[in-house]
Design a protein around this nucleic acid. Sequence first.
DNA 1: CGTACACATTCGTCAATGCGTATATACTGA
DNA 2: TCAGTATATACGCATTGACGAATGTGTACG
Lengths: 135, 135
Amino acid sequence: MATKSKPFNVERFFQALGDNTRLRLLNLMGEQEICVCYFVEILDQAQPKISRHLAYLRRAGIVAARREGKWMYYRIVMPPNLGASQVLQQTLAWLKEERTMQADRSRLTKACCTPAKFTALQGAPLPVSLPNEAR
Amino acid sequence: MATKSKPFNVERFFQALGDNTRLRLLNLMGEQEICVCYFVEILDQAQPKISRHLAYLRRAGIVAARREGKWMYYRIVMPPNLGASQVLQQTLAWLKEERTMQADRSRLTKACCTPAKFTALQGAPLPVSLPNEAR
DNA sequence: CGTACACATTCGTCAATGCGTATATACTGA
DNA sequence: TCAGTATATACGCATTGACGAATGTGTACG
């Protein structure tokens, strides 16, 4: 049986982008895979809240998750639909220009360089850049 | 007093795109100004429903309205935010590639050429292409 | 004026969404 | 096997959004 790919849901795609927390998550992922604990730390939001928004993005087909031991890594996956992937790329580029998004990214960089300073991140796995073929 | 432009609401922008009826409306507007009665005819939806979705797009800063006699014309306005306007352009280009959107456009063209055949459109004003400076 | 037309808004209802809190699940290590 | 950590899901509640039906508003015209 051929892989049944249901037609891309455009509504769901844009609805997924219509929430600031989710935009911040996407912005943090950018081109790297990130562990949930970093999202919680950087956005300073309750863990179930982060988890629910990540699940929403997953259902919309915008991110994918990978488990590694206790940790879950999330990454952006480009939608199979060409138009959608172009809009998503453009959106990510746009977010990079926004002040608040830049601030998030900068906090992430800081946390990754000195995770020991964030009590919640002791021993947490560092983000891993994705190989080119995965983008 | 300087014109107080409140910071562009990104959430609202994407939420406005997260509904198929609104996407169809935007696709029909494309680069021309269109009278509400055409939306009602082409989408074959209740007039209050069309009107509410147009109001939603207006609140999101994506379309603008102009009255001319009994008729209201709606047109797309590019958001002041650069990133938003780029994403919107890209989205409109994407919609043009979708089957159902093409079908809507084709019905619009047909209705404009022979409005007399659509009993609901007798005497309705034809769409007007926007001058370049307005895009 | 008063009617007719084009369009907007309101109201009641129902589904979807967001959030905090509590709890469940998956994995690790002793 | 049990405790601890990381993450996900369930529950209850408040808000928002979509829709049909009814009603309101602005304009042309007799």
